[in-house]
Design a binder for these strands. Structure first.
Lengths: 348, 348
DNA sequence: ATGCTCTGCTAAATCAGTTTAGCGACGTAG
DNA sequence: CTACGTCGCTAAACTGATTTAGCAGAGCAT
């Protein structure tokens, strides 16, 4: 892999100059007094030899590797990981950096291994990512260098990147209000664990807060809040069936995520109800399947790619260490309409 | 990031030996004549100082970095990428290696950048991955070192890892035959482009071949073969509606992938048909949504994690450069049953 | 002529390992 | 007594870059 590459010494010799001169020219060092002609010769030589610096040699001296470690708890399980990685990858490339990826799987041994691997390789910084928005504790060993938390916060209050769940929740509530839904809005996906333990989720509490505050400002409160043991399709299905059994059927359902909404669609379909004419459905995440559903599901998108980018920007462009909230764009699709019988209920 | 680390010189000094001795002991060099006591002292010193070798310094000399490049065309778009990466990550960790990830996005400029980044960092080998099983052309620059193709083949016939689509197709056909389906099996997802151009897909042709051969061996042929412009839910939906309009309604539908099956479910649901009592559905990929559907979808799983592993094994354990076919396990779920009215049609 | 600064460049040290070549002490054979 | 081999270990070269310290020559003022 990459034998016989030209070295700086080769370039220098060909340019008839010293390694020092070649190094300075190629690194664009200011304040050097090398002649314009010397510059030309070095550039020409480098070009002709196809010179590329050896990263190992350089970083031995400079302690910079142009490499960022991307450490996450889980890569594969969640389909969103790809977005985080891709955003980070893009931003890293723009800054001439590269990503070293490791996964801890929430296992202490693997985590130790990951940490050692990245310290041994002297990465320039670490992006510590969680696949579910949550609080976590960062292994102290990596605090010796720059760290950005991605989709997570920690006790050390390091710079971090989070999705704006509360804002998204507000937007969702406003959308429903705007359509004319008021007293018959149901929520699916309350979950004590997720709401209480920030190490499990930060999203649950923020979403709930955003929805309630926005509705309250309009003098409205939720009709029902269904609890679910998990945010999976089957729980959305069960919860929706329960809702439909009530005398005061809701006109709209907010699901805490798209998987619940997926289950809600199944239950509504079985019950012979039409979305959005009979009931509107809206949710969070913008899972790829959201746009496979019929009608396509309105949902607040987790901006994973943006978040990945932002993490790299925070890490490399060293802005003020802060908490960076990335807005969650609301994807307005066909699953939301005015409630049946409302004055605004002409079909759009 | 990792300042003040103990160096080999520190270890040597503490052990009262030379750097040479320390290096040899720590690397477990055979044939050295260092005393047992010297070994002890070096190990003890390394332990006490928490010594970890500097990878940059080492690889400068040895040209080994314990790093593998994982180059893919697209990371984020497909939800399967995670599996490939995770498998590779696991296998790499077991071999004390780490993964450097880059993405070309099918763009020549990005690819060039990725290649340079990789060569500059002297990775020990390259895994060149495609997100859809296909033939591709490998940039010559990386052929100077070990390369394994993942989910792809190439003209250079490099070692490669592929899913066994043909075998999976045979298993699917056999499953249907075994349930008693014979002359009324439909196929959704024929696609000339995919079948003809190996740079787009190798799966389409292999799946078709496997299905046909297995059915033919039982003296059966497909009732219909529906063409689709893409393998997306909407096309599965349309194709299924067309099938249902026929007088000889199929008893089973094979979909070329789960997204098509997703659309088929929608069409069947709308038509008031029950899966699997009225019609069985089976497909390929085992997309996560397959188990969200009601009834859960039977499908041949793309073994992404296995494939990622295998690629690393081929790369690092240097077996005979070969084509490695990874079996696609058939996930038998509730979407397949005996055809209505068949002798075997007691509900299971 | 002397001292001074400025210009344009280079020698050598340095980073932290691996590897080659070989040294001194000791035992033994001739 | 010398030659030779073995044992246990080390000095120094080497990898390919960056960086520090400084040198030679020109131009200028005194």
């Amino acid at each position: 892999m990459g034998r016989d590459r030209a070295t700086l010494a080769d370039v220098a010799k060909r340019a008839g100059l010293s390694k020092t001169a070649a190094s300075m020219v190629l690194n664009g060092r200011e304040g050097t007094r090398l002649s314009a002609e010397a510059h030309q010769r070095v550039f020409a030589a480098a070009e002709e030899l196809g010179y590329r610096p050896n990263v190992a040699a350089r970083s031995l001296r400079t302690r910079k590797t142009a490499t960022i470690a991307f450490v996450s708890d889980i890569v594969a399980t969640t389909r969103f990981a790809g977005g985080l990685i891709r955003g980070a990858l893009d931003a890293a490339r723009e800054r001439d950096h590269v990503l070293l990826i490791t996964e801890t799987q929430g296992d202490a041994t693997f985590e130790r291994y990951a940490i050692e691997a990245i310290l041994d390789r002297q990465v320039d910084g670490v992006i510590y990512a969680a696949m579910a928005t949550r609080r976590l504790s960062v292994p102290p060993a990596i605090l010796s260098g720059p760290v950005v938390l991605l989709n997570a916060t920690s006790a050390e209050d390091l710079p971090c990147v989070l999705p704006d769940d509360e804002g998204a929740a507000a937007a969702i509530a406003e959308t429903l209000l705007g359509c004319g839904h008021r007293d018959r809005i149901a929520l699916i996906g309350r979950n004590r664990q997720k709401e209480r333990d920030p190490e499990i989720s930060l999203a649950a509490e923020a979403r709930l807060r955003g929805i309630r505050a926005t509705l309250a400002a309009a003098g409205v409160s939720l009709l029902v809040e269904s609890f679910c043991p998990e945010w999976l399709p089957e729980h959305g299905y069960t919860a929706t069936r329960a809702l439909l059994a009530r005398p005061d059927r809701p006109t709209a359902i907010i699901c805490m995520n798209d998987r619940l909404a997926f289950g809600a669609y199944q239950a509504l379909g079985e019950a012979g109800l039409t979305i959005p004419d009979d009931i509107s459905v809206i949710s969070f995440d913008d899972d790829p399947t959201a746009s496979w559903l019929r009608p396509r599901l309105s949902t607040a998108a987790l901006p994973h790619e943006q978040m990945g980018r932002r993490a790299v920007e925070l890490l490399l462009d060293g802005e003020a260490p802060a908490q960076s909230l990335v807005p969650m764009p609301l994807r307005r699709r066909r699953s939301v309409a005015a409630p049946a019988g409302s004055p605004a209920a002409e079909h759009d």
